[in-house]
Structure formats: structure tokens, C-alpha cells
């Protein structure tokens, strides 16, 4: 579980999960920021892989998008998407996954219930707070919005992301029961 080949396979697996979530149809909101399941992938990667591997998985996914594979929701891809108003969210996915992993590694995972609770907290900090902070900065810089407007705008997505954090907790609960030797938050892999 701790050699570079496991890193290769798991990083590819979670980048693939992001691609799968991208194939599920998106919902467009005003602001030009779509609602997608892809932030769920950010939270799951952090909680299940730990900071370093989660960061690499998001990096791989965004790298594949940058070289033109249409993996973002709605079949978008290419370097153009990194200049769109929602680019702040994209760019903060790696950081969000990293922070989720960091928080997860600090919290108790002794029992499945404790692991699920920890995953919820970690997902809220990394997948929600960090990603939204990055998104707001992106809206201000790229769409030239005011700070107050951008923050109001991003709040629309928070309820959906809270649901995703609950889903993350459910998946972590499953893994803690089904694969008891899984190192949640990448404990031994750091």
C-alpha cells in the first residue's frame, strides 16, 4: 500500500473518477459557474488518498483537461477553460483535495462512524471552504466582480456542496467497514 506503484494506480483511479463525474450532465447557474459532481471527487480523493496523492490526482486530471481531453462537465476541455470565470474553482481543486487530506489525517478514524464524521469535517474544510475561496478569487480576478457580489454568488452552491460532504462521509463509512486496512487520509503513505 505504500510503494510508488500504488500511488500511480490510485492517482489514476481518482483522476478517472473526476472524469466519470464530468460525464454526468451539468446544471448551469448564472455567474457562468456550473453545478457538477466533480467537487465530490475532490472531497473523496482527499479523504481516501491523503494530501499528497490527492494533490497528484487532481493535478493529473487538470493536466489531462489542459492538453485538450474534454473531461470537464458538459464535455469542456482545453486550455480555454482556464480563462473562464469558473477557472478559480478548477485551479483550487488540487489545493482543496490536499487540505481535505491533511485534515482527514489529523482526525480520528478508529471506527467507521468516527471515520465518516472526520470525512465530513475534512470535506467541509477542504472541498467546500478552500474551493469556494479559490472560486471567489477567480470571479474577482477573471470576471472583475466585486468581493461582496462574488461571495454572495458562491453561496448559492454551498447547500449542494454540503450534500456532497455527506456523500463523502457515506463512502468513507463504507470503505472503513469494507476495507478495514484502507489507510484513510493516507496515514502511512505520507
Amino acid at each position: 500500500m505504500n510503494n510508488p506503484r500504488h500511488t500511480t494506480a490510485l492517482v489514476a483511479l481518482f483522476a478517472a473518477l473526476m472524469a466519470v463525474f464530468g460525464l454526468i450532465p451539468k446544471l448551469d447557474l448564472p455567474l457562468g459557474v456550473p453545478i457538477t459532481l466533480q467537487t465530490l471527487g475532490v472531497m473523496l480523493a482527499g479523504a481516501l488518498l491523503g494530501p499528497r496523492r490527492a494533490l497528484l490526482a487532481m493535478g493529473l486530471f487538470l493536466g489531462a483537461v489542459a492538453i485538450g481531453l474534454p473531461l470537464l462537465s458538459g464535455g469542456r476541455g482545453g486550455l480555454g477553460v482556464f480563462f473562464a470565470p469558473s477557472a478559480g474553482y478548477l485551479v483550487s481543486w488540487p489545493l482543496g483535495a490536499f487540505v481535505t487530506g491533511l485534515v482527514m489525517a489529523q482526525l480520528p478514524t478508529g471506527t467507521p462512524r468516527a471515520a465518516a464524521l472526520s470525512a465530513f469535517v475534512a470535506a467541509c474544510v477542504g472541498g467546500l471552504l478552500v474551493v469556494h475561496a479559490g472560486g471567489v478569487v477567480g470571479l474577482v480576478l477573471l470576471a472583475k466582480m466585486g468581493w461582496a457580489q462574488a461571495i454572495t454568488g458562491t453561496l448559492v452552491f454551498v447547500p449542494g456542496d454540503l450534500i456532497k460532504a455527506v456523500l463523502t462521509a457515506a463512502v468513507v463509512h463504507t470503505v472503513a467497514r469494507g476495507l478495514p486496512d484502507w489507510q484513510l487520509g493516507g496515514r502511512a503513505a505520507r
Binding site: 492517482v11 489514476a12 483522476a15 478517472a16 493529473l60
Partner: peptide, 13 residues
């Protein structure tokens, strides 16, 4: 290799 593995896993899902 990583990109190829990623696309293969996506299909496997």
C-alpha cells in the same frame, strides 16, 4: 502512462 491509465479506469467504472 498515467493519462492512459486514467482513461482506462474511467471506462472500468
Amino acid at each position: 502512462l498515467q493519462v492512459a491509465l486514467m482513461l482506462r479506469f474511467a471506462e472500468h467504472f
